[in-house]
Design a protein around this nucleic acid. Structure first.
Length: 834
RNA sequence: GCGAAAGUGGCGGAAUUGGCAGACGCGCCAGACUUAGGAUCUGGUCCCGCAAGGGGUGGGGGUUCGAGUCCCCCCUUUCGCACCA
């Protein structure tokens, strides 16, 4: 018998699968479909273990659904635009597309070496004009609808990337790609997508996402950050100009002791001009502003502010409060100004304490317990005091009534505010989708006509890594004609954030070559929604919220007729080594390709599934993969030992043995079939539900142990060949989800000609899976005293007697009074004595 | 600081609804085969104890016949958010 040779087996089956076009699927309205989607990789050079884990999970699911008879769509592609290729271009003075396409070729080979069941005909690369022209198309549609707009804005700038970062790409004040590079702020004219217009729908439609993990929804909810409150207009003393503040606690407004403006608030400049000592005030405001900028990067910076010298009138109390500029007030949220209520807001408390402003209490606890507001703010709801006509109301009542009054008298209104900001997509980079906009001196901003798409990236570009965007230095690109007046004009030279690419790529897979529209409606109709999406938790907010946003826009422009693209989401854990994320700098990277060369793809895949539950982090262990390899060797030898003998035997499928003629089985056969069907039951139920593939693998190991233990019985004729073969076949079919090459090899050895993917997933037989004799533990006063063996169907009364008659149990009952006997069917017996 | 998740042998992890804690694998120990073993096979392996027995799921309390699982308090770790008014 030959030894298990994964290299040979895997090459053989990959070739056959490809020749048989095994993983290619077409829409077929009469067939039930299943769309398995995995997050597409960035072509960074090599597949890493995180990808392998992600794709191994998807592959097991896809294979399972195939065997159940579904028409399965299982595609892959490349998230091919992005900074690393451009940075490499700067370093090596070669074009980013060279790196990108050679990396794609290399990584495609690595994925193929792993034998994943992709329909490679559907492969896409987002950096190809055939793809990115549709990014431009989407941009134009959004522009028409006012969803794409330009504004001058303060942006996060990463000095390392030399580009703008979206808010969500800033992690703890640093660039998400460069942990040690703090972002700085810059003012730039930028393109934005109006995701805020969809805030409510993004929130509302979460109700449909019942198969998404709670924590992802919680993160998104937090990110959208809806809060209900009231706008209140204070009046600037002297000029009478209104100053609007936003508050969620209008009930506390009688306790307001100052009005605080963000340093960037437009009124600040006016107040400086009108000030009696403008120079001094300007300098002070600049200091506050500087500390505010720092505070956005650092944490817990001290609250600072400066009094402007002006007062404003509180429309409820009729009292004047001083107007300050404060470093912790955000200009872009709410109204850019807040009322400071130190007794009932902790931040205001800290601020007012620092500057000696009064701290009047206007809320008392409902139960009238005293609170000490000299130590900190009382922030809970309660009952109003010292609040004029509103005194005595509860906070809830007061918020409603006071908001009503503001609306009636015209100095404010109820409002809903969101934390989410519009999505800035401009990047001062080359390797991305050009934004299809032309600037004409006469006509202003003009969108590129749809018939002129795509706006192609020029190829003759210098990558210096310095100065403005590379595109702005390519005259042939920049200089163009205005689509309206045909006069000379300039092109937009910024490119799009690559999150645009990944917001709709999964639609393109359904018909990746269609040249007339971004997505083929009838194909989408058939394949959507995505039944299962698998990927890293790190995309919980960014990618997964942009993707939802895009689908809603697509719904509005009539491309699709549903609001949510993904039914089920599974975020898998990271692959780590020695407790840390794998990274080149730490030198703890394990290369999947090397592991394939050493152990074979099946071993790598099995280990990925076995080492940890799929949603948890997986700590790579060299000893662990050895174990997986050893197991597959055992399986190979086990099946091959019997293959010759059993090849011609017809396994008993669907006949008396399977359909419940349990009494016709020998006890060894029963034992074997029980384990077989228990394993099948476990795996079937687990894939449909929990996704603890580690326990599925463990169960197949137990089955292999059982098959090994029963070999003497098989040799002695206590297990008929057709039963033995049946069990081995089921083992192979179950393993085919995890280790498909080995499974197909063994399936062939057992005398079959078709690949396991074409075989129907077996159904477990509950009667065969059931235990006939159960070992019941017996507890006396909560302590385990004995185990009794009883027939599975025995009634409670008989069990009760058997338990008490047991020798060891009786010894503990001796001389005591039995108070209670609890029989839990199938589980245990608990006897309480006094 | 706020929010979420988690804490089980030497290690990765099982225990799906409150019911035999430690499945399965790694490691380790002993043995078999062997010129050899980083191959393979067999047996053992939570702790204390010769045993009977006792203890044990981060710590402390509680509910229950019975708690890894439920409740309260505390500790630790990871992740997310971090002046959002």
């Amino acid at each position: 018998m030959d030894n298990y040779n994964p290299q040979e087996i895997e090459a053989k089956w990959q070739k056959r699968w490809e020749e048989a076009k095994l993983f290619e699927s077409e829409s077929a309205p009469e067939r039930k479909k299943y769309y398995v989607l995995e997050m597409l990789p960035y072509p960074s050079g090599d597949i890493h273990m995180g990808h392998v884990r992600n794709y191994t999970l998807g592959d097991a699911l896809a294979r399972y659904k195939w065997m159940l008879g579904y028409n399965v769509l299982h595609p892959i592609g490349w998230d091919a635009f992005g900074l690393p290729a451009e940075n490499a271009a700067i370093k090596h003075q070669r074009h980013p597309s060279e790196f990108t396409f050679s990396f794609i070729d290399r990584m495609r080979g690595q994925l193929k070496r792993l034998g994943f069941s992709y329909d490679w005909r559907r492969e896409i690369a987002t950096c190809k004009p055939e793809y990115y022209r549709w990014n431009q198309w989407f941009f134009l549609r959004m522009y028409e609808r006012g969803l794409a707009y330009r504004k001058k804005s303060r942006v996060n700038w990463c000095p390392q990337c030399e580009t703008v970062l979206a808010n969500e790409q800033v992690v703890n004040g640093s660039c998400w790609r460069h942990e040690d590079t703090p972002v700085i702020e810059r003012e730039l004219e930028q393109w934005f997508l109006k995701i805020t217009a969809y805030a409510e729908r993004l929130l509302e439609d979460m109700k449909e996402l019942v198969r998404w993990p709670e924590r992802v929804l919680a993160m998104q909810q937090n990110w959208i950050g809806k809060s209900k409150g009231t706008f209140v207009d204070f009046t600037l003393e002297g000029s009478g100009e209104p100053i609007r503040v936003f508050t969620t606690r209008v009930d506390t407004i009688f306790g307001c002791s100052a009005l605080l403006l963000a340093p960037e608030h437009p009124l600040v400049e006016k107040l400086i001009t009108r000030s009696s000592s403008p120079a001094e005030l300007r300098a002070a405001v600049e200091r506050v502003k500087a500390s505010a900028v720092r505070a956005r990067v650092e944490v817990n910076l001290e609250k600072q502010g400066v009094f402007t010298g002006f007062n404003a009138l509180n429309p409820y109390s009729g009292k004047n409060v001083p107007v300050w500029v404060a470093n912790f007030v955000l200009v872009e949220y709410g109204a850019g100004a807040v009322m400071a209520v130190p007794a009932h807001d902790q931040r205001d408390f800290e601020f007012c304490s620092a500057y000696g402003l009064p701290i009047p209490q206007v809320i008392v606890p409902r139960n009238n317990e005293p609170v000490d507001i000299t130590q900190g703010a009382f922030v809970e709801y309660g009952r109003l005091v010292n609040s004029g006509a509103f005194s005595g109301l509860t906070s809830e009542e007061a918020i409603d009534r006071m908001t009503e009054e503001a609306e009636r008298k015209g100095f404010g209104q109820g409002t809903v505010q969101y934390r989410i900001r519009d999505w800035g997509i401009s990047r001062q980079r080359y390797w991305g989708t050009p934004i299809p906009i032309i600037y004409c001196e006469k006509c202003g901003v003009a969108p590129v006509p749809e018939s002129d798409l795509p706006v192609l990236l020029p190829t003759n570009v210098k990558f210096t890594g310095r100065g403005p965007s590379p595109l702005s230095e390519v005259a042939e690109f920049v200089n163009t004609r205005c689509p309206k007046c045909q006069g000379p004009a300039r092109r937009e030279t910024d490119t799009m954030d690559t999150f645009v690419d990944s917001s709709w790529y999964f639609y393109r897979y359904t018909d990746p070559k269609i040249a007339t529209v971004p997505v083929n409606r009838s194909e989408v109709q058939y394949w959507f929604p995505v039944d299962q999406y698998i990927g890293g938790i790190e995309h919980a907010i960014l990618h997964l919220i942009y993707m939802r946003f895009f689908t809603k826009v697509m719904q509005d422009i009539g491309l699709v007729d549903f609001p949510e693209p993904v039914v089920r989401l599974f975020p898998q854990g990271m692959v780590i080594k020695d407790g840390a994320k794998m990274s080149k700098s730490k030198g703890n990277v394990v290369d999947p390709t090397q592991m394939c060369a050493r152990y074979g793809a099946d071993t790598v895949r099995l280990y990925m599934l076995f080492a940890a539950p799929a949603e948890k982090d997986l700590d790579w262990s060299d000893a662990g993969i050895e174990g997986a390899s050893r197991f597959l060797n055992r399986v190979y030898r086990l099946v091959q030992r019997h293959a010759n003998r059993l090849r011609a035997v017809k396994s008993r499928a669907g006949d008396a043995i399977d359909s419940g003629g349990v009494s016709s089985l020998t006890s060894a056969e029963r034992r074997l079939l029980r384990k077989t069907h228990q394993t099948l039951r476990h795996i079937t139920e687990d894939i449909e539900g929990r996704w603890h593939f580690n326990t599925d693998v463990a169960m197949t190991m137990e089955l292999v142990n059982e098959l090994t233990d029963l070999e003497p019985a098989a040799e002695a004729g206590e297990i008929r060949p057709e039963v033995h073969k049946k069990s081995l076949e089921y083992l192979v079919l179950m393993l085919s989800l995890f280790t498909p090459h080995l499974a197909d090899e063994l399936w062939e050895a057992l005398g079959h000609s078709e690949p396991t993917l074409k075989v129907q997933w077996p159904q477990y037989n509950p009667e065969l899976a059931a235990e006939e004799e159960i070992e019941l533990p017996v507890q006396v006063n909560g302590k385990l005293r004995a185990r009794i063996k009883v027939a599975a169907g025995l009634n409670e009364e008989e069990i009760r007697h058997l338990a008490q008659r047991d020798e060891k149990v009786a010894a503990h009952l001796n001389g005591k009074q039995v108070v209670r006997v609890i029989v839990v069917p199938q589980k245990l017996v608990s006897i309480v004595v006094k």
